[in-house]
Design a binder for these strands. Structure first.
Lengths: 219, 219
DNA sequence: GCAAATTAATGATTTATTCAAG
DNA sequence: CTTGAATAAATCATTAATTTGC
């Protein structure tokens, strides 16, 4: 069932009927240009499916086509093999690694930039297998979950202080508050907390995103 | 606890001053921009900052440390230059590119895997500068916005058929339905539609990796 | 006719939520 | 139950359409 478009070359399964593509009345600009036939052949591997950010990344598919000239598939393939070989499951942070990550977080780091990620990864690599994406994800998750925690504790505190909480929260919310599930509508609590978590003192410095990268070129 | 001085190179470039320039209204509505489309000035030589997925990707920071041995920064830098040179702003899809993408989408493709992305990018590259991430984002956005559209039209249809809609929707919802803004709480409509898109394979994470337990408790 | 100036689309990021390993 | 990984929703930001006053 998941096969469908994948079994063949990419373009072979273009809609046969010429009218189909125009059925979408979305945009205002629809020029008629012939579709480029031709299909970059490729070994029809049985693998297929599943696109995850991580995969895309590791395959370097995000680089411009120009660069793919350099990054050959063989490299990618072998690399993947290697990675597979060297331990297939999800990253399992060593205590030392977590220590360091938490120290960084505590120091104010939230979303390290690529260079930082590279460094961190390199450093943490001393304690065990790790990739940049692990570092990235860790910060993402940690930030989100710290925020959750804070939000929850804020509510609990409020609950403790004023016993009238049941009057303020609907049953759903009470439940969420209790198990931390917080399905949907967490945003509605937003007013309880400023957006900036960071319990950290003045050291929060690392707000290193004042300006944009703006791959903007010089017009 | 305060591992702050780990003597790594990690924290070297701390931002000097958070500066101002932020002050973004961050309100949900930024529609009133009084700023004329003047030439962007920026030009400040300060590089760095702002971590985006794209950056991380293009810097290949996601690759394992092992691979970073090969991927030197010089390459990345020059590459970036190249990209910047060749037309620095966001991707602006040519009609042909959109045609093809829509055809693929229409054909059932939703979240192309890395290999597919690579192919698509290569193909679309014939019509103009494009990167893998553009393809990825396009599918993400298109999927999401098609879903929105469908949801909205479903509501509209329902409105048309049963004139009792005003009794079912609160004012907010009516407004959203009308302008499609749908800020927050879109999820609450979820019951209207199954989560799975039409022919989407919905292939959830397919296990490419063998299991390999190696977890160390973090205490 | 044309720019300033809105407005509508949509590319790109960030945040919230879910899934699932262990 | 914790948390790494992934997806989806929400948000931000820029560009093309489009409108508007001249």
């Amino acid at each position: 069932m998941k096969v469908h478009q994948l079994t063949l070359g990419l373009w072979e399964q273009l809609p046969s009927s010429p009218s189909t593509s125009s059925s979408l009345s979305s945009s205002s600009t629809n020029h008629h240009k012939r579709l480029r036939p031709l299909a970059p052949k490729l070994s029809s591997s049985a693998v297929v499916s599943t696109t995850t950010m991580a995969e895309i990344i590791s395959l370097k598919s995000f680089n411009s086509p120009l660069t793919t000239k350099f990054a050959s598939r063989n490299v990618d393939a072998s690399l993947m093999q290697l990675q597979l070989q060297s331990g297939g499951t999800r990253w399992n942070p060593m205590p030392e690694q977590i220590k360091l990550l938490e120290a960084l977080y505590q120091g104010g780091m939230r979303t390290p930039n690529p260079v930082q990620i590279e460094r961190i990864t390199a450093e943490l690599g001393k304690y065990g297998r790790i990739e940049g994406k692990n570092v990235f994800y860790w910060f993402q998750n940690h930030k989100a979950r710290e925020r959750q925690k804070q939000k929850r504790s804020a509510l609990l505190a409020l609950a403790a202080s004023s016993a009238s909480l049941p009057n303020l929260l609907k049953g759903e919310e009470m439940k969420e508050l209790h198990d931390g599930s917080c399905k949907r509508k967490c945003r509605s609590w937003g007013s309880l907390e400023p957006d900036v978590e960071d319990s950290g003192p003045g050291d929060r410095t690392l707000e290193l995103f004042p300006l944009h990268p703006e791959w903007k070129q010089v017009g």
